[in-house]
């Protein structure tokens, strides 16, 4: 070894050490966020998994390990699958109606209509309200002598008045309308952000080529919004399947099981039946279902791209 090389080796080693120290130092920046994530997300998930294999009742810590018993009971529970079915109906209705309305509203608000900014604010008011509050407002609207039936009577459509929430034929759809009314603003904002990212030149070129408004919507706007649409769809599915506040405020899952949804069933299992073990098993099964659904949706959109 050449003696002259010694200082440079020393320097290299010092530099390496400094880099390592810096790396650890950089980790310190993410540590607070990491700890919060561990404390409030990861740890509860681990506890959920842990409890799902026990007969924990929610308060007594003397619980026993019961293996896959809760999972077996959850999977064979027909009422649970009915609740999932109701959640799927909510999701489908939201995907079709809520997102279509949100898209049309965002296109309208993005065009140079008078008061466009005002509409942007107005459409985003419902999502910032509490779900429980919205649920109670709509409950009042749907009451037998409520606003909706009152309006129908006033305009001479007495034959269409109905017990909206008290009938198994309409309760689910009535709750879905209230949920969509609140959710439309969220999708609207995302679509609007997507629309504002589309270059104006595309529309100008299309317009020079003689494309009509509907053709521009079909061939420029919708294809350009594909990624936003994927995001909106995923959020809509997750939101609709996880619906709780509206159902809790309006029907408590009734009449009978007509509006029972997965989140309400999990809540009931945990806090009414004091069966936290089972509630956690339901939560995990449901969480996995949502994860798979989101993954499928994501893969499908990537395939299209």
């Amino acid at each position: 070894m050449d003696a002259s090389s010694l200082p440079s080796t020393k320097g290299k080693s010092y530099g390496n050490r400094k880099k390592i120290i810096m790396r650890y130092f950089n980790l310190a920046y993410v540590l607070p966020a990491l700890l919060l994530f561990i404390l409030f997300s990861l740890l509860p998930i681990i506890r959920t998994v842990q409890y799902s294999f026990t007969n924990f009742n929610g308060v007594n810590s003397n619980y026993q390990f019961v293996g896959f018993k809760n999972y077996a009971a959850a999977i064979t529970d027909t009422r649970w699958w009915e609740a999932v079915g109701n959640g799927v109906i909510f999701a489908l209705l939201s995907l079709v109606f809520m997102n279509t309305i949100a898209l049309l509203l965002s296109v309208a608000a993005n065009s140079n209509i008078r008061g466009g900014k005002f509409y942007r604010v107005v459409f985003y008011i419902p999502p910032i309200l509490s779900g429980i509050v919205v649920g109670y407002i709509w409950k009042w609207i749907y009451e037998p002598k409520g606003l909706l039936n009152g309006v129908l009577r006033d305009i001479g459509l007495d034959q269409f008045t109905h017990v909206w929430l008290g009938s198994i034929d309409t309760a689910l759809y009535a709750v879905a309308v209230s949920s969509m009314w609140q959710g439309v603003g969220g999708s609207f904002i995302l679509f609007l952000a997507g629309l504002q990212g589309i270059p104006k030149d595309l529309y100008e070129a299309a317009s020079i080529d003689g494309a009509s408004r509907s053709q521009q919507l079909r061939y420029i706007t919708i294809p350009s919004l594909r990624k936003v649409y994927t995001l909106v769809n995923i959020l809509t599915i997750l939101g609709a399947l996880g619906i709780f506040n509206h159902v809790y405020a309006m029907t408590m899952g009734g009449p009978g099981y007509a509006t029972e949804v997965p989140a309400l069933r999990i809540y009931r299992e945990a806090f009414t039946n004091s069966n936290f073990g089972m509630a956690n098993a339901f939560s995990l099964i449901f969480g996995i279902m949502l994860f798979i659904l989101s993954l499928i949706q994501l893969k499908l959109s990537q395939k299209k791209d």
Binding site: E143, P144, V163, L165, G166, M252, G254, P255, G256
Partner: peptide, 9 residues
């Protein structure tokens, strides 16, 4: 029963 009894609180 009154109308809406099934979900009435």
């Amino acid at each position: 029963f009154a109308e809406g009894i099934a979900t009435m609180d």
